[in-house]
């Protein structure tokens, strides 16, 4: 099942796209696995995800931790720490 990924702020800029649909290997189980997998997809992705621990993630618009399983996710958002307010 392909999943829709959406990127924000400097992650979006480094990858050079706002969103994409990706088919993921079965070995990608958690958000942390996804970030590690994305970092292997080329120089731009490696630059975006070079420090995995700073990346925040949301599954279907709800914030999640890196150990969250992604099974059943329709949309996964990946972004830097938020700076609202």
């Amino acid at each position: 099942m392909p999943v829709r990924l959406v990127y924000f702020a400097w992650i979006r800029e480094r990858i050079g796209k706002r969103d994409e649909e990706l088919a993921l290997p079965a070995s990608v189980v958690t958000v942390g696995d996804l970030i590690a997998h994305l970092a292997t997809l080329g120089e731009d992705y490696a630059a975006a995800f070079e420090v995995p621990k700073v990346i925040r993630a949301a599954i279907d618009e709800e914030l999640v931790e890196h150990d969250e399983p992604i099974a059943g996710a329709r949309e996964i958002g990946l972004f830097p720490p938020m700076t609202g307010g």
Binding site: P81, G84, G85
Partner: peptide, 26 residues
């Protein structure tokens, strides 16, 4: 306000005299 700063998905980028600058860090 304390929760908007950390839990609401907004990101700020600076614009200065020389155009677009850096993203504001949390």
């Amino acid at each position: 306000m304390d929760h908007l700063k950390t839990d609401a998905p907004f990101w700020k980028k600076e614009h200065g005299a020389e155009g677009e600058g850096a993203w504001v860090e949390a």
